[in-house]
């Protein structure tokens, strides 16, 4: 199954949107990298759902970064994106990492806008005893160790072998730099979290699944446990032999978990 890519006008902001499949709407909110492109697991979900995969402001061809100064701006942006999609009812919302934080924020502020919620290795919380690792300013070799359980995964190998940035195509470096800037605008300080989020998680009414890679070295499993314990009725599913990016490292397992939960 192939997906289409189009530019969506959202209140004057251009949003790059990838879409595939018939079925109930599934809005996927990507993380800081890797899953901002279309992945095989999205094809799998597109067999049962209409998958909407927008690029965040500042990523890919999406504009609007100049209006994003914090998480609240991003939430308003996605309220507008959902309206612009012209759906019959509220979508399922699936968010990974940074996108998971955004998903949790939407679900607690606008409970009626989310059908079912899936948080995959989501940012957004602060745990003194298990802080999220440093991402900004971390060399690719170190980042590969934080992100992947299997250091032989092709993407881990590719990241580990980057010793000189000038080896990479200019376009790739520019996209990466712009992506980091887009993340920094929201997530620099407080670092990848909203101090008020944890206390408001009980406002979420959508049935929620929390998915976590057991060996996530970037955002520890304790964050997943905290999310699951604070969101009413939430269930936690832990994927073994998996780091921070289940959609890349264990696509079959996470693909199946999410499909079963949303149907």
């Amino acid at each position: 199954m192939s997906h289409t890519t189009l530019m969506l006008d959202v209140r004057g902001t251009a949003v790059e949107l990838r879409r595939a499949g018939p079925g109930a709407p599934l809005l996927y909110l990507h993380g800081g990298g890797g899953d901002s492109e279309w992945l095989p697991v999205f094809d799998r979900w597109a067999e049962h759902f209409t998958v909407y995969h927008p690029s965040h402001p500042g990523f890919g061809k999406s504009g609007g970064l100049e209006h994003i100064d914090g998480i609240e701006d991003l939430v308003f942006h996605y309220v507008d994106v959902i309206a612009a999609l012209g759906l019959q009812g509220p979508p399922h919302v699936v968010g990974q990492s940074f996108g998971g934080w955004v998903a949790a924020e939407i679900a607690q502020r606008y409970p009626q806008l989310v059908q079912r919620l899936v948080l995959i290795d989501a940012a957004g919380l602060w745990l003194d005893e298990a802080p999220m690792a440093e991402m900004f300013g971390t060399e690719p070799q170190e980042l590969a160790k934080l992100l992947f359980y299997d250091q032989q995964h092709p993407l881990a190998v590719a990241m580990s072998s980057i010793t000189d940035f000038t080896q990479l195509p200019e376009e790739m470096i520019l996209n990466q730099l712009k992506a980091m800037e887009a993340l920094a605008k929201v997530a620099w300080n407080p670092y990848f979290h909203n101090p008020k989020l944890e206390r408001r998680l009980d406002r979420i009414t959508a049935p929620t699944l929390v998915v976590w890679g057991r060996q996530d070295g970037l955002i520890p499993l304790a964050h997943g446990e905290r999310y699951a314990s604070r969101i009413p009725g939430a269930r936690l599913a832990v994927i073994d032999k998996c780091g921070h990016l289940p959609v890349i490292e264990q696509p079959d397992k996470v693909g199946e978990l999410v499909t079963a939960f949303l149907r």
Binding site: L177, K178, M180, W188
Partner: peptide, 16 residues
């Protein structure tokens, strides 16, 4: 050079 400190183009120029 932290993210967003310079434009992406300037950061690239510095790197190279």
């Amino acid at each position: 050079s932290p993210p967003g400190y310079t434009t992406a183009r300037s950061a690239l120029k510095i790197l190279t």
